[in-house]
Amino acid sequence: MNAVDISDLNVWFGKGRDRVDAVRNVSLTLAQGGSLGLVGESGSGKSTILRALTGLAPSWTGQMTVAGKTLGRRRTRTFYQTVQMVFQDPYASLHPRHSIDQVLSETLTLHGYRDIEPRIEKLLADVGLGPSYRFRYPHQLSGGQRQRVAIARALAPEPAILLLDEPTSALDVSVQAEILNLLTDIRAERDLSYMMVSHDLAVVGHMCERIAVMQNGEIVETMSVEDMRAMRMTHPYSKHLLSASMGLPTDEALSDL
C-alpha cells in the first residue's frame, strides 16, 4: 500500500475571469517509507499539492488517498495523526507569545494524549533540544532551533507521513545541514514517508529517492535521484532547471536575454 496516492488532482483559486489553475491533472504516488521531492519554480504549484493534501486548498477535484483512505472534503483527527506538515518559515509558523511548552502541550492535548509531560521531554530530546529550551519563547531561539521546534510539533501526534514545505530555505547552509541530518535520522528511526517541496535541487537530491519536476501546475517529469544525478532526464525544462541550479548560466538562459 502506498502512503499517498494522488490521481488527476486539479486545484484552482478564484473563479470566472480570475480563476487560476494552480495544479492541473497531477497524479503521483509516495511509496510507504519512501521520499518524494517536488521541485519547480515559484508558482509551479508544488506547495499547493501539499496544501491540498492537508485540506488547506478550498477548491479541488480528483482523488487523493492517504494510507488507503480516500480523502473527502473535510479532514478528520485520524488524518492529522497520519499526516503532519513542517512549514517554510520558522519565524512565522510559531506563535510568538506561546512558549515551546505551550506549543507542544496544546498539540498533544488536541490529539488526546494524557501523558503530556514525558512526551514533551521526549519530543525535545528527539529533535536535539535540551530540556532547558522547554520554557523559552520563539524569539529566544535561533532560526534552526525554531525549525527544530516546528519539527517536534509535527512529530507530536506520531504521524507516518511528513509533508515538508521548503523546511530549510530560510536557514543558513550550516544550519540547513543540521536540520537535514535531523530529518534523515528521524525518518530512519520512525520509518516515516516524506513528501518534500524545495526549489533547491541539491537539497531534494540529498533527501529524496524520487523527484517530480513541476512547471505551470503540471508534473512534467518524474525520475529517480540516480537519474537526476547522472543528468538522465528527458524533458527540456528539467534539464534547464538542473543546469541552472548547478550555478552555471546555461546557453538557453543567456540567449533568453
Partner: peptide, 8 residues
Amino acid sequence: SLPRLDAP
C-alpha cells in the same frame, strides 16, 4: 555542509 548533486 552543502548537499551536492555530484557527490551524494
